[in-house]
Amino acid sequence: MDAPILELRGLSAGWGRAPAVKELDLAVAQGEIVTIIGANGAGKSTTLMAISGILKPMAGQVLYQGRDASTVPPEELPAMGLCQVPEGRRIFPRLTVAENLDMGAFRRRDHDAVRRDMDRVFELFPRLKERERQQGGTLSGGEQQMLAIGRALMGRPRLLLLDEPSLGLAPLIVEHIFSIIRRVNETEGMTVLLVEQNANLALKLAHRGYVMETGRIVLSGTGRELLDNPDIRRAYLGE
Results as ranks from 00 to 15, higher is better:
residue 3 A to E: 15
residue 4 P to R: 07
residue 8 L to D: 01
residue 8 L to H: 03
residue 11 L to T: 07
residue 12 S to R: 06
residue 15 W to K: 12
residue 16 G to L: 04
residue 21 V to D: 01
residue 21 V to R: 02
residue 23 E to S: 13
residue 25 D to I: 11
residue 29 A to P: 12
residue 37 I to M: 11
residue 40 N to K: 09
residue 42 A to P: 10
residue 46 T to D: 00
residue 48 L to F: 04
residue 49 M to T: 11
residue 54 I to M: 12
residue 61 Q to H: 10
residue 64 Y to L: 03
residue 67 R to I: 07
residue 70 S to F: 11
residue 71 T to S: 12
residue 81 G to H: 08
residue 81 G to P: 12
residue 86 P to E: 07
residue 87 E to A: 11
residue 87 E to H: 12
residue 88 G to Q: 04
residue 88 G to M: 07
residue 89 R to Y: 01
residue 91 I to F: 00
residue 92 F to V: 00
residue 94 R to T: 13
residue 94 R to K: 14
residue 95 L to I: 00
residue 100 N to D: 00
residue 102 D to A: 14
residue 104 G to W: 05
residue 105 A to F: 11
residue 111 H to I: 15
residue 111 H to N: 15
residue 114 V to M: 13
residue 114 V to E: 08
residue 116 R to K: 14
residue 119 D to C: 08
residue 120 R to H: 15
residue 121 V to P: 07
residue 124 L to G: 03
residue 125 F to P: 05
residue 125 F to N: 02
residue 126 P to W: 09
residue 126 P to E: 13
residue 127 R to Q: 14
residue 130 E to W: 14
residue 138 T to E: 10
residue 139 L to D: 05
residue 141 G to K: 01
residue 147 L to E: 02
residue 160 L to I: 04
residue 164 E to W: 15
residue 166 S to V: 12
residue 167 L to W: 08
residue 168 G to C: 06
residue 169 L to K: 06
residue 173 I to W: 07
residue 173 I to F: 01
residue 176 H to Q: 15
residue 180 I to S: 02
residue 182 R to D: 15
residue 183 R to Y: 03
residue 185 N to K: 08
residue 185 N to V: 06
residue 186 E to T: 14
residue 186 E to D: 13
residue 187 T to L: 12
residue 188 E to F: 09
residue 188 E to R: 10
residue 189 G to E: 10
residue 191 T to Q: 12
residue 193 L to E: 02
residue 193 L to V: 07
residue 203 L to A: 02
residue 204 K to P: 09
residue 209 G to H: 02
residue 214 T to R: 09
residue 214 T to N: 10
residue 215 G to Y: 04
residue 219 L to P: 05
residue 219 L to N: 00
residue 223 G to E: 05
residue 227 L to P: 09
residue 228 D to T: 08
residue 228 D to E: 15
residue 230 P to D: 00
residue 234 R to K: 10
residue 236 Y to I: 13
residue 236 Y to K: 09
residue 237 L to S: 01
residue 237 L to P: 07
residue 238 G to E: 12
residue 238 G to I: 12
residue 238 G to T: 11
